[in-house]
Nucleic acid binder design. Structure first.
Lengths: 217, 217
DNA sequence: GTCTTCGTGGATACACCGTACGGTAGTGAC
DNA sequence: GTCACTACCGTACGGTGTATCCACGAAGAC
């Protein structure tokens, strides 16, 4: 079976899922495919172009959720699909917002979002649309990024509370004991572990409500 | 003059400002300081610990803006200072949200934000606070990241419109000509170049209004 | 059949990276 | 003087992305 961009992207995604973005190298991909490293350069000019390729494959799955008749449910569905994609492919969160996403499927997602938002009440002109899209994307990027790194540190320290206190604890508890960070201490100690998905949806609704209800600046 | 963590962090920041995070290496820092590469490991255990160090130096400058009597102006000032810091040190945006920021100054900024938000109307319990802080940080991270990568691509293609059309244009205009992305095309072609700072402040206010006005979930 | 051409696949090489390791020189204790 | 110990640093290893060069095999000309 001959090599192809699709096949390269697929195994790159598999490797990145397993070992993270740092553990991904052209040589390992080539070895996995049973070819020499330079063989990949016939299909991809750069490492970063390969990353763009991987990103767009993920966007393809996000775009699959399609658009609904209601603008709000379209936006919600796309945002949730983006979050789920990032949880499935954590390296995607590392790349999110880091370079312009101009692949065809990324553009399709952007188009669906933009078209939906343009029908939202309160979005009157093209300037409103640009701002609203910016707010939405900023929130999605930041929220997904935060959640993924939170999950990573939780996993690396161990899920249970005791292990966390033992690993990151020494430094952090010492810091909190100084009394200089009372509110943070309260959050760390008393804060319940909120459901991440619920929090995401709650704050996403907050942003959407702000977009629709905000008077023109 | 003896070596120190501060001195190492300072030259690392200088180099990162000049050549980006990818252009930053322990060897170059060491060479700049006139020492062997291994010398740095007496002060820093890791490359990533060095990055944490750099990040916290930037947070120190953000924390300097201090807290105001009004919770809202505190949050606004910190957010704007974060944005400005990221525009001055673009690598900071690359690291934002990518790892937990636990340095003393980062904690101070988090504390100031959390304390301010806890006084906001609509933030009733610790759960509300956690969510509100999450929404605020998510927006800041995403917005800053977006703006920095936008600025980077604008700079790499050349500031003026013509150069952009010439470099990224061939692919992008071809894509837009397909008619599959009408809303995006409208944004690219008709969209005015909104003032970035104004947009940031506008959307930040949107998020803060949402935090204060949203009924409990 | 023989020779030439050509394009594709792969090996090798280079510059650079983070970091482990081993030695060495200098200082203080007895 | 001798020894122990510490602070420092040069060298080396395994890895990375990528440029260059080469070998080989298939296709066509005569």
């Amino acid at each position: 079976m001959p090599l192809s961009r699709e096949k390269i992207a697929a195994t790159a995604i598999r490797l990145a899922d397993a070992h993270g973005l740092d553990g991904l190298s052209l040589r390992k991909i080539a070895k996995e495919l049973g070819v020499g490293p330079m063989r990949l350069y016939d299909y991809v000019t750069n490492r970063s172009e390969l990353l763009d390729l991987m990103v767009d494959v993920v966007y393809a799955r996000i775009a699959d959720v399609g658009q609904h008749s209601e603008w709000r449910s379209t936006v919600l569905t796309i945002a949730q699909a983006t979050r789920e994609a990032a949880l499935e492919h954590e390296w995607f969160a590392d790349l999110l917002g880091g370079r312009p996403h101009l692949g065809p499927h990324a553009l399709a997602v952007g188009e669906a979002n933009a078209a939906a938002l343009s029908e939202a009440p309160g979005v009157r002109g093209i300037d409103d649309l640009q701002r609203a899209l910016g707010a939405l994307n900023a929130f999605i990027i930041g929220a997904v990024r935060r959640e993924v790194t939170e999950r990573r540190t939780a996993r690396s320290t161990g899920t249970d509370e005791a292990a966390f206190q033992a690993s990151r604890g020494p430094y952090l508890t010492r810091m909190l004991k100084t009394g200089r960070y009372p509110t943070i201490a309260r959050l760390v100690i008393d804060g319940a572990h909120l459901n991440a998905e619920e929090t995401f949806n709650h704050n996403l609704a907050l942003v959407l409500d702000g977009i629709t209800s905000r008077p023109r600046a």
